[in-house]
Nucleic acid binder design. Structure first.
Lengths: 154, 154
DNA sequence: TAAGATTGAAATGTCAATCTTA
DNA sequence: TAAGATTGACATTTCAATCTTA
């Protein structure tokens, strides 16, 4: 293994290096993609990836509304974060917070017409970006490989 | 395509749904893994993932030292972040900041003996964690699939 | 007692100056 | 003028209370 002109100083065994590359490569790919997609979304619609995640769940929900807790769980966010982002989106007029009938603890996030419009537009931008930068780069066999990877990691 | 018992309300075409799953699955996998690994690292060594990235690069560098700029580039961090983390690590006695000979603008980050010890220990923890949660879950064919994915995304 | 939601404080990260030297 | 490093202001995220209702 180390027969060639390898460096003279301490190097972990070759196996470990290759394994580490897989992990750091995974991290680097995630960092680059999320940065590019987030920048695009911010520039065109003034939305973060997390905010779009919330709007998208609401747009897909029955009646275009969800309880904050359910919204957080569905989007993989903490209740705190969901609450804060919802507050910011309400200030922009994209949703309204209303009480839940029959449970005065709960708060519903309800998309406004404007919110639904923005959600659709931003989703279109995002889907295009994901297709171009992520799915397009992967190709059919890359996508199949990714599905195997995600199934194993799930 | 939509011959089966699909939902009656507006759904993007089936292709788009599957593609979106790949992307959100990628995001979810990254989120879960980095959270778990970071928590483990923080609990045992009081280091963030970013801080270990810096320490690791220094431990691997010739003379256990690197210029801040080179360190940032190698670790994929911004100069600002590298500078701040280096300052914090210096306060803990894990490295020293010294001037670069021949270029008075530059600053070298130099691992201390203690820093090298902590870097080795934390790297051991991290490598074990990555092996168990990431590589172990992937398996040989999963790892091969990941390599294809990363090659396409690079 | 516990669940839902929110708030404040602290950690982390980014962006735009700033300061020194090349 | 530009590069290297740092700083301050700001946004984002998380953690630990807090407050209300079940």
């Amino acid at each position: 293994v180390s027969g060639g002109g390898g460096p003279p100083y301490d190097v972990p065994d070759a196996c470990q290096v290759a394994l580490g590359d897989a992990w750091t490569g995974f991290l680097a790919a995630h960092r680059r993609l999320t940065r590019e997609l987030e920048a695009e979304l911010e520039a065109r619609h003034g939305l973060s990836l997390s905010a779009l995640e919330l709007l998208g769940r609401l747009a897909a929900a029955r009646g275009h509304e969800l309880r904050i807790t359910d919204l957080a769980r569905a989007a993989g966010l903490s209740p705190t974060r969901a609450s804060r982002i919802a507050r910011a989106l309400e200030r922009r007029g994209l949703l309204q917070r209303r009480s839940v009938r029959g449970d005065l603890r709960g708060v519903r996030a309800c998309l406004t017409d404007e919110g639904l419009r923005v959600a659709r537009e931003a989703q279109a931008t995002h889907v295009t970006g994901v297709r171009r930068r992520f799915l397009g780069a992967l190709g059919d066999d890359g996508l199949a490989a990714l599905h195997l990877v995600l199934a194993r990691l799930a």
